[in-house]
Nucleic acid binder design. Structure first.
Lengths: 329, 329
DNA sequence: TTCTTCTCGGAAAACGTTTTCCTTGCTTTG
DNA sequence: CAAAGCAAGGAAAACGTTTTCCGAGAAGAA
């Protein structure tokens, strides 16, 4: 294996000089820099990121903490796009990434998790699907031992950024559009998982809209479950004018229930998953570009690792009407 | 950070001894072993896998090469399950995993890819979605520089195993069931991607069945595309009795076409993706347990890394009829 | 007893980087 | 002209393991 030592020999300099060139340190003359780069070129040298990680604690090793509690393929789609976006940007930024699924750290204590991450020379973390009651992850963020980017949860401190769309506004927007299109007054709102950050934000959006338009809203907890949403719709939709759901999957469940009951109510969802295009009925929903969110998350993490301060990044969302023709390929 | 050195001091032995205990080497007395283990326990020591990887070339670092050419969420679902299964088993086997998506190595030469993998101290690889014409991956496997497990492609050599279901038999089975249920004679077969291993295997299964039952088969290439399958069905299904598709996504496309044409033909798919439950019509399909396939792939890779020889592992498949009620949760 | 063979454990090199500190020679300043 | 400052590059320690080799002592054989 060709190492930095070979490059040094080839360029006629010390290995420390090569390292400096590779990492864009100052105090290297343009001429030496050139010579080293030529040697790198010639020998096809690729730095060993494992050694780099071992040597420098502040290296570019990054972990993705991915929540995969659910069994649904909708979640698969969302997670996959997140991971794709994150890896994509990481590659461009030359960051090493390891992906940890929640089952890999679910029953660790914070201390264990921290030890594990350190044993992997991890310096930065992107956290997905963090709920309000997740003590371990909250403690992890609070220690500030790692640079963190939390996706879809408004956690910010000196070494923690948050990235996501404005869930409150998005829920407001999509509900407003649906309600005004159909001139509704009585809303059945099927909320997400209890104690989820996005759940509460979306509910706030709905409540704000209700106040503004003078709507009555019945809120029920759907836990992001298609089945629950279906049952809730069965039970309560009859004397409502519209079913607003905090996720597409629940919207699908609601729609199925309405079809079974043979009544029509407008339904709107949230997320913009592909599945929405297959259920026959068109529905309003919020399109989140998950890959883009995660690209931004990785970008933000990179900034943090470079010494930047934590901050809140809000990305735009989009209202769409999902139908089969738009997604088939 | 607590290191092996601390453990050694705590246990009153040399660090080499600790390492030996940790890696189950012989030539350590039971008493010393105990003492070291107690120290590990007491100090909550977690070995630094980065250092281990750097130090020993035959370490447990493994790469997943995941093909994500397509944009469809069906692929997301399949890939996600593969990754989940692989990571799950890797965790149990104490293997370090890095996940590489195809866009990260697509335009590398073999040499570059090999260099990159070595720079990551990778010893074993699981390859997904390998097509017959992928020169780079084929060369990678042929060099035998890494232990490889190829999923769904019958490549085997001294350091390469293959893992997957029997695609030929599976296609035979599901087509036979569908055809016999509906008493068909004239088959429209929509095949997968040209030059795919599974594509050819499944086609062989269909052809064998046709010979046995005396069917006529029109074969068209659907490239695993829903849209193509839809168009093919539009064009050719009219004077056929059944549409057999080499993937669920294509089966969905075919079904949509039949609905648009307002004619009924039985359709069967292949893969058992969740989406199948949402299209309204029930269809026969082959259920592959992707997570299980990948668990086995990881297991096999572990065996190879431990010195085992390459071999072909064939896993069972299952015929199912997918409907909404079975997948909602 | 003496030699050989084992078993156990330690010392130290190696893995490929990063980073700190030092040297050298040159330029500036007073 | 001496002192100070600075730029460029090198030497070597450090990161936390694994692994090879060696030595000490005990046990067995002659």
């Amino acid at each position: 294996m060709v190492s930095i030592k070979d490059v040094a020999r080839c360029a006629g300099v010390a290995i420390s000089t090569v390292s400096k060139v590779l990492n864009d340190y100052p105090n290297v003359s343009e001429e030496t820099r050139e010579r080293v780069n030529r040697a790198v070129e010639e020998l096809n040298f690729v730095p060993n990121s494992v050694a780099a990680a071992l040597s420098s604690k502040q290296a570019g090793r990054v972990a993705l903490l991915v929540d995969i509690n659910s069994k649904t393929s909708a979640i698969d789609e969302i997670n996959m796009q997140h991971i794709t976006g994150a890896l994509n940007r990481a590659m461009e930024l030359n960051l090493d990434v390891i992906t940890l699924f929640s089952f890999m750290y679910r029953n660790m204590t914070v201390e264990e998790l921290i030890r594990y991450l350190k044993s992997q020379s991890i310096a930065g973390i992107i956290i997905y699907g963090m709920s309000k009651e997740d003590k371990v992850l909250h403690k992890l963020v609070e220690t500030q031992e790692f640079k963190c980017v939390v996706v879809n949860a408004p956690l910010v401190n000196k070494s923690t950024s948050s990235v996501g769309i404005d869930d409150r506004k998005a829920q407001y927007d999509v509900a407003r559009k649906t309600i005004e299109e159909n001139n509704c007054k009585r809303v059945l709102y099927i909320a997400g998982k209890r104690n989820g950050y996005v759940t509460d934000e979306r509910l706030l959006g709905m409540e704000q809209l209700a106040k503004e338009l003078g709507l009555t809203v019945l809120v029920r907890n759907g836990e992001f479950s298609e089945l629950l949403a279906r049952n809730i719709t069965m039970k309560y939709a009859k004397n409502k004018d519209v079913v607003v759901c905090a996720s597409d999957l629940m919207a699908i469940g609601a729609m199925k229930a309405l079809i079974d009951m043979d009544i029509f109510r407008p339904v709107c969802g949230f997320d913009g998953i592909v599945l929405m295009g297959y259920v026959g009925k068109q529905m309003n929903t919020v399109r989140q570009n998950f890959a883009e969110v995660s690209r931004n998350a990785m970008e933000e993490l990179h900034t943090l690792l470079a010494g930047g301060e934590g901050r809140k990044v809000v990305l735009p969302h989009q209202l769409v009407r999902m139908k089969y023709e738009d997604i088939i390929c």
